[in-house]
Amino acid sequence: MEIRWDVFLIIVGAAIVTFIPRVVPLMVLSRIELPEWGMRWLNYVPISVMAALISQEILVHDGKLSSLTDNIQLVAAIPTFLIAIKTRSLLVTVLSGVIFFMFLRWVFTWV
């Protein structure tokens, strides 16, 4: 098998480009003690990113805002969201979401 140097350099470059934005902030922030308000602000980043990813997947279908009547994912997301609030467990939330979605897909194939 022949090694193509252009492909190898693209892979190395992509690795460096993805490595630098992850490691540099970690190295800088590990040496600095952030104020309390900064730590509180950083606690909201993961849930904000997750909410943005999930809401786009659930609420938008074919480039249009979808409604409850034609969106099984949105119908399954409502009880899953309530379970997430109640249990605060990622495992229980994911399992309940999958189960709700599977159940709704099964029900609507019979209708």
Rank of each mutant, 00 (worst) to 15 (best):
L74H: 06
L65W: 14
M27E: 11
I72G: 06
W110S: 10
A77F: 12
Q56Y: 13
F19L: 06
S66N: 04
F101R: 03
V28S: 07
I16C: 08
F8V: 00
R4Q: 01
I47F: 15
G38L: 07
P35E: 11
W37E: 08
N71S: 11
T80G: 04
I11F: 09
I20H: 01
V24M: 08
E2I: 08
S96D: 01
I16P: 03
L95G: 04
S48K: 07
P46K: 14
A52H: 07
R105C: 01
A84R: 10
I10F: 09
V107C: 03
S55H: 07
V98T: 15
A14V: 00
L59S: 11
A52G: 14
I78E: 04
V75F: 11
W5D: 00
V75I: 15
F100G: 03
W5Q: 01
F19T: 03
S89I: 07
R22W: 14
W37A: 10
S55L: 10
T87R: 07
V23F: 15
K64T: 15
G38K: 12
S48H: 07
L95C: 02
I10P: 00
S30Y: 11
I10Y: 09
V7N: 01
Q73I: 08
I54C: 06
M102E: 12
D70E: 15
L53V: 14
V92I: 14
H61F: 12
E36P: 00
R31H: 11
R31A: 11
I99V: 10
M27D: 06
S66E: 08
V92F: 13
S67G: 10
K86T: 10
K64P: 00
I72P: 03
T87A: 04
V24E: 02
M27P: 02
F101G: 02
M39A: 10
A77H: 02
I10G: 01
Y44C: 03
R22H: 12
I58K: 01
L82W: 14
F8I: 00
V92R: 15
F8Q: 00
K64V: 15
I20P: 02
S66R: 01
V28R: 10
